Simulated assay, not measured.
Amino acid sequence: MPSPRQTLITLFAGLLLLSSMEASAAGKCDRLVVTGSPDAPPYLWRDPQDPAHLMGANADLLKEAAAQMGVKVELLYGGKRSQALEEVRTGRMDLLADTPLNNNELESLDFIHPPIAQNEIMVWTRVGHAQPFNSLAELHGHPGAISEKTRITPGFDNAIKEHLTLEKQPNLTQAFQKLMLGQVEFVLAGRYAGMALVQTLAMAKDLQSQPLPLDRPGLYLALSFNSACNDPWLRGQLAKKMTELAASGRSSEAIAHNLELWKAQLQQPTSAIKQ
Rank of each mutant, 00 (worst) to 15 (best):
D98K: 12
G70K: 02
A228N: 08
E185L: 06
L223G: 09
L16K: 09
Q265W: 15
L76R: 15
M21H: 07
G182Q: 07
A256H: 03
I116V: 14
L212G: 00
V33G: 02
Q131N: 03
P4E: 12
L139E: 03
M1H: 08
D50M: 03
K161W: 01
G78E: 04
A246N: 08
A256I: 02
G27H: 03
A239S: 15
A202M: 04
T150K: 07
T7H: 06
G128Y: 06
K63Q: 14
Q275H: 01
E185V: 00
I152K: 15
T10L: 15
E105Q: 13
P170W: 04
M21Y: 07
Q6E: 15
Q6D: 10
R250L: 14
L139A: 11
G144K: 02
E167V: 13
L221Q: 05
L219M: 13
R216F: 10
A117M: 06
S37C: 15
K240P: 01
G144V: 04
T90I: 11
Q199W: 04
N158K: 14
E162G: 05
T99L: 03
L214M: 02
Q275T: 05
G218P: 07
L219V: 04
L15N: 05
H142W: 14
P232K: 12
Q210A: 10
L8K: 10
L245E: 01
G128W: 02
I112W: 04
E22T: 07
E120I: 02
M180E: 11
Q267G: 15
A23H: 04
G27R: 04
A137Y: 01
L8C: 03
L266N: 12
L234I: 12
V187M: 05
G249C: 09
F186A: 02
M93N: 03
I273S: 12
E185N: 10
P143N: 07
D231R: 13
L106M: 10
R92N: 15
K240H: 12
L201E: 12
E120W: 13
S271P: 00
S37R: 12
K72I: 00
R81F: 09
L201S: 04
K63S: 13
Y220K: 05
P42Q: 11
G91I: 07
L223V: 06
S135P: 06
M122S: 07
F111E: 01
E260Q: 14
R191V: 02
G128C: 05
L181V: 01
A145M: 08
L234W: 09
A247P: 00
R216N: 12
G36E: 05
A52G: 09
G91K: 10
L139H: 09
E253K: 10
